[in-house]
């Protein structure tokens, strides 16, 4: 897959200019990053309009707080990704929880499973995370991918995987430990 990955320093450069109230820099950041961030948010909130709402808030926050970006705590690109994910998760967590008896919702859960697995399959063969996720048993890997990629909580992951809640919680607990051991 072809991906536009602008140079990391480019983005922190843009953030520095945005911190000095440079709107052209914000527009350039939007051109570079908004499409990527909308796609990330949409995996979680499902609807394009909601994903765009999330990214709108992200850019407003960037405009207000670009000077708070601290390069010592990670890359500028990662900062944007984290902010987008948190906003998207807040949006679905604040909403009423999904009703699993709804047939439409069940097919939506199928889409989530597809997205989660597609994300895993798209990881580069040499990627450490791919290697370590691949080393987990299937159910642990699936549970972790569903929660991370599509923002499901424990209960939703249990419904999707048709497994008891306690079991899914244990999969995730043991899975994240094994994962960090493998990544270390």
């Amino acid at each position: 897959m072809l991906m536009l990955m602008p140079d990391v320093t480019d983005i922190s450069d843009l953030l520095a200019r945005i911190g000095r109230r440079d709107r052209n820099a914000l527009a350039a950041l939007f051109d570079h990053e908004s499409g990527r961030l909308v796609a990330i948010a949409q995996r979680i909130v499902r609807r394009r309009d909601l994903a765009e709402d999330v990214v709108q808030e992200v850019f407003i926050t960037v405009w207000a707080r670009a000077d708070q970006f601290d390069p010592s705590r990670g890359s500028a690109r990662g900062w944007l990704t984290t902010m987008t994910r948190n906003r998207a998760l807040n949006l679905i967590r604040d909403d009423a929880r999904v009703d699993y008896h709804d047939v439409g919702v069940i097919s939506d859960l199928g889409d989530r499973q597809f997205d989660a697995l597609a994300a895993f399959d798209t990881l580069s063969e040499r990627d450490a995370l791919r290697h370590c996720l691949g080393a987990l048993d299937e159910p642990k890997r699936q549970a972790i991918l569903l929660c991370y990629v599509t923002g499901l909580n424990h209960g939703e992951a249990a419904a999707t995987l048709k497994a008891p809640l306690g079991t899914v919680k244990a999969w995730i607990r043991r899975g994240v430990l094994a994962l960090q051991e493998c990544l270390a």
Partner: peptide
């Protein structure tokens, strides 16, 4: 490490 999964989302054109 997990951000690699976010990077697999196919970017949409800026709207």
């Amino acid at each position: 490490h997990f951000h690699r999964l976010d990077d697999t989302a196919a970017a949409l054109p800026p709207n």
